[in-house]
């Protein structure tokens, strides 16, 4: 079942339809970041809320391919494209353009008879030195994320955050404590490794992060080779900065690190409430998503006639865009309504 409501409401012919399975391109008969199993899935990046298992065919960027194979299994049928390379599916022209979210993350540009739609996936405008820089793409329809779409979310420059992390790391070293940062294993961790390795090579990470590092290294991403976590002795453990997935930031695997201090690196650490929820000792506001000014900037840069908002504060951002005289619509509730109906 899919909704044919869009055309009726907007009075426009659109390349996109929003269905229970995700964002659908009917002319090409493929889905972008589908929620449910489909025949042809186009994936913007490897995070689990965008790349799900069970689809018959996958299409993604060259850098996302090894990540998908790592996360969804090596037997998946996946085809990859370089950034900017065009590909036709049932007459619809498709290409990937850098989204800046993490290495290999892409905006999907679809074009049919001169009508262009861009599905941003997750993106950020700030250059982090590892992921390909966000590239504004002209389009008629723009699907944007809105994870941090409130004016309270304004990020500081990455250099300042990294310098703060390094200062904290040095303090811990002087107090004979290891420094443990919990961060998302794909994207944030590699970003931190890449930025902090310039300061000191004493960085190690949990095996789940190292697996992703190996996959990306093999695909050509410049991620430094780190010391093996389990080869580090107790005596030298205080020198190290350990990166770990948030969910397993404490446990037996840390037995070689008798004294340590834990930190969280996330965009949610910007607010006091977010910090309260965290169990870490220190909090660093570092996000791979666009902040409020960047979201507005990206929407304007796309020059889109219609903006669809999803993934976060979609209602609020859509309302704000409407007040800026931009034809915007939140699409989150269509997916959720479908899910609720099913439940």
């Amino acid at each position: 079942m899919w909704f044919g409501w869009y055309s009726a409401i907007m009075g426009l012919s659109s390349l996109l339809e929003f269905t229970e399975k995700g964002i659908y391109v009917p002319k090409g008969d493929f889905y972008i970041d589908p929620i449910k199993k489909v025949k042809q899935a186009v994936i913007t990046h490897g995070h689990s809320d965008h790349a799900r298992s069970g689809n018959i065919k996958y299409l993604c960027t060259d850098l996302t391919k090894p990540v998908l194979k790592l996360r969804l299994g090596s037997k998946i049928n996946v085809q990859s494209l370089a950034f900017g390379e065009s590909f036709f599916i049932n007459g619809v022209k498709l290409s990937f353009h850098p989204a800046g979210h993490l290495p290999g993350s892409a905006q999907v540009r679809v074009e049919y008879k001169g009508h262009i739609a861009v599905i941003s996936g997750d993106y950020k405008l700030e250059k982090d030195g590892l992921a390909e820089a966000f590239e504004p793409v002209f389009c008629h329809e723009f699907v944007t994320e809105s994870t941090f779409a409130l004016p309270i979310y304004q990020w500081q420059a990455q250099e300042k955050i990294i310098a703060d992390i390094f200062t904290w790391w040095q303090q811990n070293q002087s107090e004979k404590k290891a420094s443990i940062i919990s961060a998302y294993p794909l994207g944030k961790s590699q970003r931190l490794i890449s930025a902090l390795y310039k300061y000191s090579p004493y960085i190690t990470c949990h095996p789940s992060i190292e697996n992703t590092n190996i996959a990306l290294r093999n695909a050509g991403v410049d991620i430094p080779i780190l010391d093996d976590l389990f080869s580090i002795t107790k005596n030298e453990s205080h020198r190290y900065l350990v990166l770990t997935p948030t969910i397993i930031s404490q446990g037996l695997w840390l037995q070689n690190f008798p004294h340590y201090e834990l930190a969280d690196a996330s965009g949610w650490m910007a607010t006091k409430q977010g910090r309260k929820r965290s169990t870490a000792h220190r909090h660093f506001t570092l996000s791979d998503h666009a902040d409020w000014p960047s979201l507005n900037q990206a929407v304007l840069a796309s020059q889109a006639e219609t903006v669809f908002v999803t993934h976060g504060f979609s209602d609020d951002f859509a309302r704000h865009l409407k007040e800026q005289k931009i034809n915007a619509q939140s699409i989150d509730h269509f997916f959720t309504r479908e899910r609720i109906e099913q439940e």
Partner: peptide, 18 residues
């Protein structure tokens, strides 16, 4: 939008700063 930001932060002074 101002009110929404305040309610999301749950701390007025934190919201003002942000």
């Amino acid at each position: 939008l101002f009110e929404k930001s305040l309610s999301h932060c749950n701390d007025v002074l934190d919201a003002i700063n942000l």
